[in-house]
């Protein structure tokens, strides 16, 4: 029996523009607990749209099933989206998900320690004494904890961003091209460290990337978005699992 954490079925998202319509179709996406997934595709294939949908910052045109399954129960994300209740959606975002952004997503006016602490504050969760030091040690970031993001190198910023994403032991981490701003060598190191730390934390990761070579080395499974022109006015992209 599979240990799914997130299941998405029958999803359609239609985006309209002057150039025509783009339709993202996901027949089924099932992510298992503790696995490291990659979502690849060319530019314009719908990776960002897919990430928006999973982050609940964009709502599907239609969806049959969109659920998050945890030990405490199943959260009907489709129903939650349909309700439009900001407080409830925000609560799911801060308790079930965490995010790693291309830019790092760190708040420049907070130190690394304060950035790490913010998700705890939002959840009113206490921080055990010495927790950040012990956690940062795994990324060799202890000495950077009290620095502002502007004082860090690109690699350090991404590490700090990964630390913030994993610090609260989230069930699902959505990473959007976290290595886009660093060189290839550093990217390999950062993604490896990321995968290892996520595995130790038991978090499921879906990492969006355009670099199949990079994610191919570390991902348990890769999903691909392949767009094809249906008509002059409609381009369709469907999710394929490998």
């Amino acid at each position: 029996m599979t240990d799914n954490i997130l299941v998405l079925e029958g999803l359609s998202k239609v985006l309209s523009s002057d150039a025509g319509e783009f339709e993202l179709l996901v027949d089924r996406l099932a992510l298992e607990r503790g696995k490291f997934y990659a979502l690849v595709g060319k530019s314009g294939s719908g990776k960002s749209t897919m990430l928006d949908l999973l982050s609940m910052v964009s709502f599907p045109t239609s969806v049959d099933r969109f659920e998050m399954i945890s030990e405490t129960g199943t959260v009907d994300l489709a129903g939650l989206i349909a309700s439009g209740k900001d407080a409830d959606i925000s609560a799911v975002r801060r308790t079930k998900f965490s995010y790693i952004l291309q830019s790092g997503g760190l708040f420049p006016f907070l130190t690394v320690r304060e950035n790490l602490a913010l998700p705890f504050q939002l959840r009113n969760a206490p921080v055990p004494p010495g927790y950040f030091e012990r956690f940062a040690e795994q990324f060799d970031m202890v000495h950077q904890l009290d620095k502002k993001p502007s004082a860090l190198s690109g690699g350090q910023r991404q590490r700090a961003s990964i630390l913030r994403a994993l610090a609260g032991e989230p069930q699902m981490v959505l990473a959007d091209e976290p290595t886009a701003a660093i060189d290839e060598t550093m990217a390999l190191i950062v993604v490896k460290e990321f995968r290892d730390l996520a595995a130790r934390q038991g978090a499921t990761v879906l990492m969006v990337s355009h670099d199949l070579d990079l994610v191919g080395r570390f991902a348990d499974q890769i999903f691909t978005l392949k767009p094809h022109v249906v008509s002059p006015r409609l381009t369709r992209s469907e999710l394929e699992a490998h």
Binding site: V57, A87, S90, A91, R93, R94, F107, P119
Partner: peptide, 15 residues
């Protein structure tokens, strides 16, 4: 606004 958007993304309520 990117910082504010990030706050929304990590679960800060509108209120």
């Amino acid at each position: 606004q990117v910082d504010y958007a990030t706050m929304r993304l990590i679960g800060m309520a509108k209120s």
